[in-house]
Write a protein that binds this DNA or RNA. Structure first.
Lengths: 225, 225
DNA sequence: CCGTATTTGTCCGTATGTATG
DNA sequence: ACATACATACGGACAAATACG
């Protein structure tokens, strides 16, 4: 009953285009659609049992998000991110994370600090059992929550755009087990810095973590190249 | 001949949806479409002599850009930006401009500094003849060029998104003549800071200018309220 | 290089939901 | 509150461009 009603509500507020858009986004985030893949209109239309119009509208939306590329009369492709753009994305995320730290440190609530510490524990647990897929997702949620706490909805929106785009960088999870230790040290440093309430220190901890993350990325991609 | 060819090229690479999207974007930037205005599908279809499908696709693209809002079964409206979001946008732009200054200062070329100084002169000229519309446009170009010089295409893309959205804040130009002097002082400080090559100083000059701009905005909106 | 098959781009019609008298 | 008018959401068809044999 509640489910039926909430579904109805969803159907009332979310158009088919929106649902298609969200589903494709999910496919990209989960890696089922990888960079370079072609997205066939008829394919998706049949798959979702809808006409091509909403599919095309979803494509346009995803194009504006920078997740797919529309080539006129050729088709839609999941965007490929090269080394240059990867570096650019990290620089951008560093800027936003730095700002997040500066905004959040002076206003973070005790209950929010508690929650972040609980995320740290969950991340530790995932790292301990070497569940890198889980660690990956928890890591994203941890950072997303921090940006949420900063209390700037527009900042959060742009931050998420960047993260979404970074999914196209999908690095392989294997052989990064030991990295989670370094990553977790940085995570703890972030939470501690936030706890002090010092904007500069929190900003620095946030920026530094992004920088280290980039170093880890290039290390891995060099390995695989 | 060259024109005809390049037009043909444009028609080959740009779809009708793209052209519609760009035209609506222009209307928003020029203020002919203001925050809250409704965008009627048939209206635009007849106006551009096309069917409604490309119009709808353009709407979806603009929605992802955060310039219009789609309300299911109700229509498309130019987004309205309240005080809260205005503050958020400025905070975000400050973060990006700060990063721009930091990136650009160590790598700016002599010829680029020359160009920026020529922009300063043009801005002075517009201010002198109290042509605030011109000053407004030149100001946007000046800043856009700086971000371009920073050499991070993704940063530029996101910066432009923010600027586009800020057009919805369209403040009135009158009674801001005296402000252009303060604004120009800050512009000169930015160029000088960039010329020193000191990242921290350039970052500070850029951030400060955005902050001052925000102060000027709230001063005006308070006046008109 | 050409013809065919597939895919995209656009247009139009219809059903559904919304606003208004 | 009801009925009418209108706008939107979606489906389906046709034309044009591209890809492939």
């Amino acid at each position: 009953m509640t489910t039926a009603l909430s579904n109805l509500q969803i159907l009332q507020t979310r158009s088919v285009s929106d649902l298609v858009r969200e589903e494709i986004l999910r496919l990209i985030k989960s890696g089922q659609l990888a960079a370079g893949d072609k997205l066939n209109e008829q394919n998706f239309a049949q798959r979702f049992k809808v006409s091509r119009a909403p599919i095309r509208e979803a494509f346009r939306s995803l194009e504006a998000d920078g997740l797919v590329k529309l080539e006129k009369n050729r088709g839609v492709f999941v965007r490929e991110i090269g080394e240059v753009e990867a570096r650019e994305l990290y620089a951008l995320r560093a800027a936003l994370d730095e700002t997040t730290g500066r905004l959040l440190a002076p206003r973070i609530q005790a209950i929010q600090l508690e929650e972040l510490r609980s995320w740290l524990q969950r991340l530790d647990a995932a790292a301990e059992r070497s569940d890198m897929v889980d660690y990956f997702e928890l890591n994203i949620d941890f950072h997303d929550r921090i940006v949420e706490f900063a209390g700037n909805a527009t900042l959060l929106e742009f931050y998420r755009r960047i993260i979404d785009r970074m999914h196209l960088l999908r690095r392989r999870y294997f052989s990064v087990t030991h990295e989670s230790h370094a990553s977790q040290d940085e995570h703890r440093a972030i939470v501690e810095a936030l706890a002090t309430g010092d904007p500069a220190r929190a900003a620095q901890a946030m920026r530094s973590h992004v920088g280290q993350g980039y170093e880890r990325l290039v290390a891995v991609t060099k390995d695989s190249a």
